[in-house]
């Protein structure tokens, strides 16, 4: 049996209690929502907290509020996000991405907040303890070298959330509550390109909700590359949202890529190419090619490196074409 390391489960009923517990236990405690990312990692001894603070029982986190856009509690399950009619209609890329995460059972257990905070991934890291020990531990946990690029001063583990790039494309704001204050941060500022410190979040801060602006008149699409049609994490994700006027002229466009570095990236230059123009297939190809320049995949996920690099412009152009055509 691959067992969890011992810990004590704390089950606060309110956010205030959760924050108080975190203050009390500091680094010894971690938050858990669905646990579908954290528990496998704990079983492999990537994390060994003495206390787990369960956010599941906090009612406030599971609310969805539709007003000037939508505000989705971080505790809402991916299954609910995928099947919510308003999200399907107005934020199609988000319902698509949530519906493509892992498997049906895991989508009922995993939450949107947990998905947006999901740990970065690497072939040398997502292994059990004896495997990592026999090779020699890497920088991300217990060691000091990076097996992917030995001269790299930082960890290059990959941001592997399906919903994260969608949040960049949809101009999401994340609402964080900590012991000091509550603050709002843009999705693209929440992430940073460092496989170990991949979130700009203080340890005590809880992601409480995600706010998406009103998006009527926009179309959004998410495309995911992975080996099997189920269970697998993204090897690449392309999220697009666009707004065209009646003549088909592009008024706004946002393209974001997932699983191409330690953070999801916004391809601003690529999107700019489309503005004020009526995108035809040549222009879409050009924009997708521009986006692909941002992807610097390393050999630390599933699938061949050269193939993954080629697929960036293919998936970006598919996502753009579909968003523009719909």
């Amino acid at each position: 049996m691959l067992r969890l390391p011992p810990f004590e489960l704390l089950q606060p009923a309110t956010l205030a209690e959760a924050l108080e517990l975190k203050k009390q236990h500091g680094e010894d405690a971690m938050y858990t929502s669905g646990g579908t990312d954290l528990y496998p990692n704990m079983k492999r001894r990537q994390f060994e907290p003495h206390f787990l603070i369960a956010l599941k029982g906090i009612e406030e986190l599971s609310r969805i509020e539709i007003k000037n856009g939508i505000r989705i509690g971080a505790g809402v399950s991916l299954d609910k996000v995928a099947n919510h009619p308003f999200i399907q209609e107005h934020y199609t890329a988000l319902s698509t991405a949530a519906g493509l995460v892992s498997s049906p059972q895991l989508r009922k257990m995993g939450t949107l907040g947990g998905n947006l905070c999901v740990d970065t991934r690497c072939t040398y890291y997502n292994q059990n303890y004896p495997w990592r020990k026999s090779l020699g531990f890497c920088m991300k946990k217990d060691g000091d070298i990076c097996w992917v690029a030995r001269s790299s001063p930082k960890c290059l583990a990959v941001s592997s959330s399906d919903c994260a790039p969608v949040m960049l494309a949809l101009e999401a704001d994340f609402i964080l509550l900590g012991n000091e204050d509550q603050r709002t941060i843009k999705a693209e500022e929440f992430y940073q390109d460092d496989g170990i410190h991949y979130l700009r979040k203080k340890p005590d801060e809880v992601l409480i909700s995600i706010s998406l602006p009103e998006k009527s008149g926009w179309n959004s699409v998410y495309k995911k590359l992975r080996r099997r049609g189920t269970i697998d994490f993204p090897v690449l994700g392309a999220a697009v949202s666009v707004r065209l006027d009646e003549d088909g002229i592009c008024q706004d466009a946002r393209l974001a890529l997932g699983a191409v570095s330690s953070a999801p990236v916004l391809a601003s230059k690529a999107s700019e190419k489309l503005l004020g123009k009526k995108p035809d297939s040549d222009l879409i190809q050009a924009a997708a090619y521009e986006a692909s320049k941002l992807a610097k995949p390393m050999d630390n996920t599933d699938m061949n490196l050269g193939y993954r690099k080629k697929m960036v412009s293919v998936f970006a152009s598919r996502a753009l074409s579909e968003a523009i055509a719909s």
């Binding site: 489960l9 646990g35 492999r44 895991l106 009922k108 257990m109």
Partner: peptide, 26 residues
Amino acid sequence: ELGECGACTVIIDGEPLLSCLVLPSE
């Protein structure tokens, strides 16, 4: 035991969930 295979699926309040990643106290 890592959520990847579904062999441990049980039904909890009508929903199929993976018992290898569920804590009994919850």
